[in-house]
């Protein structure tokens, strides 16, 4: 019997509805879990995504793409298959996609996290038979604290740097983490918050959806230096670029789940690493399996072979690897 969802050379495919979820090759009709570039690629005939994802797709892929916008929980019928989007807690607008046909339910998590970051629509478990889950941090060495505890660490560090008379540069993914951090800095009005163009562009696009964030774009012309004590948000790719010369005397930190490992932090030569991730850690991945009650687990990008074996041998559930082309984007750029 053919499965309702399977992977082919273009993406996760639902043959019955003839649609793809997060395809990596151009297709007619694509359902998009979220706007990160490895999940939302160019060249598709039509994009189906959450309202908050749409402005980012337009920003990145151009205004001429065809987008159908949906709300969370809104059922969409395609060739008798019911699709619906449910909050994934990863970034604003990120969704798990539920696929139901004749009583059989599949869920594609996309990227997700169970911890509330204060901005993204919080994760909601979706009961299903078949769960296709990511596994970016699918090893028990990854155990993340609440984002709110990390926000406090970030603010404390910023204050410490201000007292030392140096600027604070935070490197984080321009879509997602940048906004959830800025969202916590609304009270900090006395000191300037400056944004790299990549972050400012995303903020600008989200304004159309009524989301507003503190921070000024550090324009490239005229070339100005950051004032003392400022906090600057930039994507990881800014590290070591000439753009950083404008930061004056600064300390720099990376915000990423990878910062859990000392080697990853030292390799990048940053002063500090904040363990802040928009993905599930090992415990959350296990909890998600419990919450969905899924009987079959398919593991995609990350530590897929290890997490599959764990689910199969230690949790006694049928599990298999699903080979996709999604990448870990935590340290990549938009």
């Amino acid at each position: 019997m053919k499965r309702l969802l399977q992977v082919n050379d273009r993406g996760i495919y639902c043959e019955r509805a003839d649609v793809y979820i997060d395809p990596w090759q151009p297709v007619q009709r694509a359902l998009i879990t979220h706007a990160h570039s490895d999940h939302a690629r160019r060249g598709n005939g039509q994009y189906l995504c959450h309202h908050d994802t749409a402005p980012i797709l337009t920003l990145r892929l151009g205004t001429d793409i065809r987008i159908q916008r949906v709300s969370y929980g809104e059922p969409i019928q395609i060739n008798g298959v019911t699709f619906s989007f449910h909050p994934a807690g990863h970034i604003l607008g990120s969704a798990q996609i539920r696929v139901a046909y004749k009583g059989e339910i599949w869920v594609v998590t996309g990227d997700y996290k169970l911890l509330n970051d204060g901005l993204s629509q919080p994760y909601e478990p979706v009961v299903c038979h078949h769960l296709i889950t990511e596994s970016t941090f699918g090893l028990p060495v990854y155990a993340f604290k609440s984002p709110f505890a990390v926000y406090k660490e970030i603010k404390d560090w910023w204050r410490e740097n201000q007292q030392a008379g140096v600027n604070t540069v935070l490197l984080c993914y321009a879509l997602g983490k940048a906004q959830s951090i800025l969202n916590q800095l609304r009270e900090e009005t006395d000191v300037p918050i400056l944004l790299h163009g990549a972050v400012a562009n995303v903020n600008g696009a989200l304004a159309a959806r009524g989301y507003h964030f503190p921070g000024q774009w550090m324009e490239t012309e005229p070339v100005t230096k950051a004032p003392k004590g400022a906090l600057i948000l930039a994507p990881p790719s800014a590290l070591g670029s000439p753009w950083m010369r404008r930061m004056g005397n600064y300390r720099v930190a990376l915000c990423s789940g990878w910062m859990q490992l000392r080697g990853a932090r030292r390799r990048r030569g940053v002063d500090k690493g904040f363990v802040l991730s928009d993905h599930c850690d090992f415990r959350q991945l296990n909890e998600a399996i419990d919450l969905t009650g899924a009987e079959h687990i398919y593991v995609t990008h990350g530590y897929e072979s290890q997490f599959t074996r764990w689910v199969r041998e230690e949790r006694g559930l049928p599990a298999e690897i699903m080979n996709t082309l999604y990448e870990d984007m935590e340290l990549e750029e938009l």
């Binding site: 090893l139 028990p140 060495v141 155990a143 859990q260 490992l261 530590y303």
Partner: peptide, 25 residues
């Protein structure tokens, strides 16, 4: 840590340092 030894080894490969692996687990 309540994990099988193979998962300990996999974790060690990812971390690349035994002392740090012990700490994280």
């Amino acid at each position: 840590a309540g994990i099988p030894s193979w998962l300990f080894e996999e974790s060690y490969y990812a971390v690349g340092d035994l002392g740090e692996t012990l700490t994280l687990l």
